[in-house]
């Protein structure tokens, strides 16, 4: 635990929620009799830990990703697993819009010019209003992004293998487009797909090839869904402007070619991380554990 972590405050809060619960700051205990385990993505929930918790029935991961969990070990023991997949949708949606606007308004360029003592007179900045915004993946985050874009006046189209209902489309102000059409039509494209066998490097030469010259490509999903060489190629040959929050290896090799091509905006896998989203993770984690304790099915169960 970092020294700034307010352990005693957290304990005081916990005593008002479930007086029997306790906080453990390390996993090198001999044995633990808990039935419920709450952990973040930073704690390895593996065979070694689970075997020390013979009464364990439910694991709640207080984040979206749960790659830290050995799901086979849980499955073997019939232990339930849940994550919190929706708490960061607001922050991701805002991050995507921030990145798109930063590109459209040439913020990086202006900033660097001024810092270097120049005063640029001309700009080819453009507006988000009226642009065609393509969302690939219409889950919780994609929907929230569409909702926010409504007020920017974009023409929003989306692709998802599972089409949403007509009513939802109407309410979100979006229309469905097959993948190729979306790639061809969009001025800005943002990815919101999970990493699966189907999406592994699914943004490749052909896909980037279909995109408009000079269009904006935003990835806050997972690094592995993009073929990086194809992206670099598209940046060079078609002037694609990219916004990258996630990388196949994190942290990435700073000498990589991606960091040398122009018009790319980077952030360090923080699109979903805000003070507010962390608060929501906590609230949702508590709700879910309370549901389990009162005998109901927890939400967002993955096992």
């Amino acid at each position: 635990m970092p020294p700034f972590f307010p352990t005693s405050e957290v304990n005081a809060t916990l005593s008002q929620i479930l007086p029997e619960a306790e906080i453990t700051t390390s996993t090198d205990f001999e044995m633990n009799a808990s039935e419920v385990l709450v952990a973040t993505t930073f704690t390895k929930v593996d065979e070694a830990l689970i075997s020390k918790m013979p009464n364990l029935k439910f694991v709640q991961i207080a984040s979206t990703g749960y790659d830290n969990v050995d799901t086979d070990s849980l499955r073997k023991r019939n232990i339930k697993l849940a994550n919190i997949p929706t708490a960061n949708k607001e922050s991701v949606a805002e991050h995507v819009i921030t990145m798109a606007l930063a590109q459209l308004k040439n913020l990086l360029y202006f900033h660097n010019e001024i810092v270097n003592g120049n005063w640029p007179f001309l700009t080819n900045s453009s507006e988000l209003m009226g642009k065609t915004f393509g969302i690939i993946g219409m889950g919780a985050i994609g929907k929230r992004l569409a909702e926010r874009l409504l007020y920017f006046g974009t023409n929003t189209i989306y692709y998802d293998p599972a089409r949403i209902t007509d009513e939802e489309e109407e309410n979100l102000g979006v229309s469905y487009a097959p993948m190729d059409e979306l790639l061809r039509k969009s001025d800005i494209i943002s990815l919101h797909v999970p990493l699966t066998k189907e999406t592994d490097r699914f943004m490749g030469e052909k896909e980037f090839g279909l995109m408009k010259d000079g269009s904006i490509f935003i990835n806050t999903a997972r690094g592995e869904v993009v073929n990086e060489a194809a992206l670099i190629n598209a940046i060079k040959s078609k002037g694609i402007r990219a916004c990258i929050d996630v990388y196949a290896n994190e942290p990435p090799d700073p000498t990589g070619e991606l960091f040398k091509v122009p018009n790319v905006l980077f952030s360090p896998h923080v699109a979903g991380v805000t003070v507010e989203s962390q608060q929501r993770f906590i609230t949702d984690t508590i709700s879910n554990v309370l549901k389990y304790v009162q005998g109901l099915d927890p939400s967002y169960q993955v096992l």
């Binding site: 479930l18 007086p19 309370l290």
Partner: peptide, 10 residues
């Protein structure tokens, strides 16, 4: 609705 926390312990 019912939630498992006791009411205002302590």
């Amino acid at each position: 609705p019912y939630l498992p926390s006791p009411l205002l312990p302590g």
